[in-house]
Every structure is written in structure tokens, then in C-alpha cells.
Computed example of a mutant assay.
Amino acid sequence: MTRDERFENGLTMLRRIDGEAGQKVIDSLADISPELGHQVVAWAFGDIYTRPGLPLRDRQLVTLGALTALGGCEPQLEVHINAALNVGLTPQEIVEVLLHSAVYCGMPRALNATFVAKKVFAERDLLPVTAP
């Protein structure tokens, strides 16, 4: 596959998962590192997200857990919490994965991620979230 084809595949997947938010991230890199923007689209979304091994909802569960564990990724968490909702995860499932993350990455990181989720849910009129 050519560089341009990988980018186009990735752009299609990015739009499917992240909608407008993903494009805003790519656009924000245009004046500083367009190559990073290209790689996010072509590699992350064109090569990795399109692989057949996991459904998109499972990929988003992994992404939420990883971003929570890393800490300091609140802007990316916001994008990916929206993406998780876009691919079919429920607010309850997202809250559960963030709660589960507390065991492995600590309470402060899980709290930060949960507050990001709360912001996203409020913006999408999904509060209050009821327990499963």
C-alpha cells in the first residue's frame, strides 16, 4: 500500500471513530509537525486500528486503560472517551474500565481519567451514570 493509500485508509477510520475531534488534532499539527499528523492517521488509524484482531470497542477499552495508566494524557483521554462512545461503549462500561484501572495504575490516575469522563458525559448529556 502506498503512503497516500495508508493515509486515506487511516483518515476513513479516524473519522469513523473520532469524528470531528480527530480531525482537529491532525489539523492542530499542520503548522508544527505535519509528519506527526500523517503518522497518527496512516500508522495508528490506517495500520493498527484497521487490523482484524480486535473489534473497535475492544481497541477503545485498551486505549482508555493505557491512557489512564500513563497519566498526563487528559486531552487524549477526552478524545478517546468520545471515541469509545462512538463505537458503542456505554458510559457504564467506560466508568467500569476506569475503576478497574485504579487497581493497576493507582487512584490519582483513575480519578483524573474519571473526571475527564465526567466532562465528556456532561457535554453529551449522559449524566448521571448509573451503576451496572
Results as ranks from 00 to 15, higher is better:
Pro55Ile: 03
Leu85Pro: 10
Val25Trp: 02
Trp43Pro: 00
Ala84Val: 01
Gly106His: 02
Thr130Arg: 11
His80Arg: 12
Arg51Ala: 13
Pro75Asp: 10
Ala131Phe: 11
Pro108Leu: 05
Ala122Cys: 02
Leu127Gln: 08
His80Met: 11
Pro75Ile: 10
Gln60Ile: 06
Lys24His: 11
Ser101Gln: 05
Gly22Phe: 04
Leu56Gly: 13
Val116Asn: 12
Asp58His: 10
Pro91Lys: 13
Ala30Thr: 14
Ala122Gly: 01
Glu74Tyr: 06
Gly106Thr: 00
Thr63Pro: 14
Phe45Pro: 09
Leu61Gly: 11
Gly10Met: 00
Ile26Leu: 08
Glu8Phe: 07
Pro108Gly: 05
Ile94Phe: 13
Arg16Tyr: 07
Ile81Ala: 14
Phe115Met: 14
Ser33Met: 03
Phe121Val: 02
Arg124Val: 04
Tyr104Pro: 08
Val25Phe: 10
Asp125Cys: 03
Arg6Cys: 00
Leu85Ile: 06
Val129Gly: 08
Glu35Trp: 02
Leu54Trp: 08
Ile48Lys: 04
Leu99Gly: 00
Ile48Val: 15
Val129Pro: 09
Leu14His: 05
Ser101Leu: 01
Ile26Ser: 06
Ala42Pro: 00
Thr50Ser: 15
Glu123Asp: 14
Leu67Pro: 06
Glu96Tyr: 04
Tyr104Val: 10
Pro34Met: 03
His100Ala: 02
Ala122His: 13
Phe45Met: 05
Leu98Glu: 11
Cys73Ile: 03
Val41Cys: 10
Glu96Trp: 02
Asp27Arg: 00
Val95His: 12
Val95Arg: 15
Leu89Gly: 09
His80Phe: 13
Glu96Lys: 06
Leu89Val: 07
Pro128Gly: 11
Gly71Cys: 08
Val103Phe: 15
Leu29Met: 13
Thr50Asn: 14
Lys118Asn: 06
Val95Phe: 12
Ala102Asn: 10
His80Asn: 13
Leu56His: 15
Phe115Gln: 15
Asp47His: 05
Arg16Leu: 09
Ala66Pro: 01
Pro75Asn: 08
Glu74Leu: 03
Val25Cys: 03
Arg124Asn: 14
Glu8Lys: 15
Asp125Ala: 03
Asp18Phe: 04
Arg51Phe: 06
Ser33Pro: 01
